[in-house]
Design a binder for these strands. Structure first.
Length: 252
DNA sequence: ATGGTGGAGCGTCCA
């Protein structure tokens, strides 16, 4: 089973690439962030034509998450933090609980958005604990907007203290995963420097000035089923790409 | 300090 996550930065602009990615990689479940559209404008038909189901929590212009899957989800919960912001969608499929989160960007240190981001991390952690998801076959994936380790950024000294790599943020992410979540990419590639996001500006992709901020975390019960985890970097080199690329998890 | 690029959707805001 192949489960992927991708911040597409507008589903309508990236639709052809998303369809290509699903087919080329034989993806079973795709978790999308920043679809940037309301549900009423989501291209449901394009996915049903490919024999995929789509579950959408959308919002006008900003945010927006979705789950795309070959077989139907048994249950889907949107808005799990009850904040009305289209950043969370969770579903049950087979024996898995999959929680797709678009974590806040965070603005700058000390800004209102920065504290919102740290609070958001606590709320997701509490939600997982409250619902005992950590003791289920649980997958937390999405755009975390935080690089956790030094090897998750292109220059740890230059980026020290900047958004996405501040101590307070890394502490928040470490605190979240301390409840028993395993970084699937790191499980297979312990010391590999690899990124999932490159800024649009300044030729960042060509220079490989990136960060690994899109991740797939699994609960301990799934460790024995991990088969592979990879980053589909080639999609960043296409014309009019998203600034993020997909991460793919293969489960036995 | 600014601007560098991109998306939504027509004002700017957000990343």
């Amino acid at each position: 089973m192949k489960i992927a996550t991708w911040n597409v930065n507008s589903i309508r602009t990236r639709l052809s690439y998303v369809k290509m990615f699903l087919v080329d990689n034989g993806i079973d479940v795709l978790s999308l962030q920043e679809i940037k559209t309301e549900e009423k404008n989501f291209p449901f038909e394009e996915f049903s034509n490919l024999n995929y189901f789509a579950y959408v929590f959308g919002q006008k212009a900003y945010n927006g998450v979705a789950l795309i899957s070959k077989s139907p989800f048994k249950e889907v919960k949107k808005n799990i933090l009850n904040d009305g912001i289209a950043r969370t969608i969770e579903g049950q499929i087979d024996d898995l609980t999959i929680l797709n989160v678009y974590f806040p960007h965070g603005g700058n240190l000390g800004s209102e958005q920065f504290f919102y981001k740290l609070e958001f991390y606590k709320k997701v952690k509490n939600y997982i604990l409250k619902n005992d998801l950590i003791n289920k076959n649980f997958i937390l994936l999405g755009d975390f907007n935080i690089a956790r380790e030094d090897i998750d950024v292109w220059d740890k000294d230059l980026l020290d203290g900047t958004i996405g790599f501040m101590k307070e943020e890394r502490d928040a992410l470490n605190d979240l995963i301390s409840i028993g979540l395993i970084d699937a990419f790191r499980y297979f590639h312990g010391d590999v420097v690899a990124f999932t996001w490159w800024d649009y500006t300044g030729g960042s992709f060509k220079r490989n000035y990136g960060m690994r901020i899109d991740c797939i975390y699994v609960s301990k019960s799934l460790v024995g089923r991990l088969k592979n985890c990879y980053i589909e970097k080639s999609l960043r080199a296409l014309d009019k790409p998203s600034d993020h690329v997909p991460v793919v998890l293969e489960l036995i």
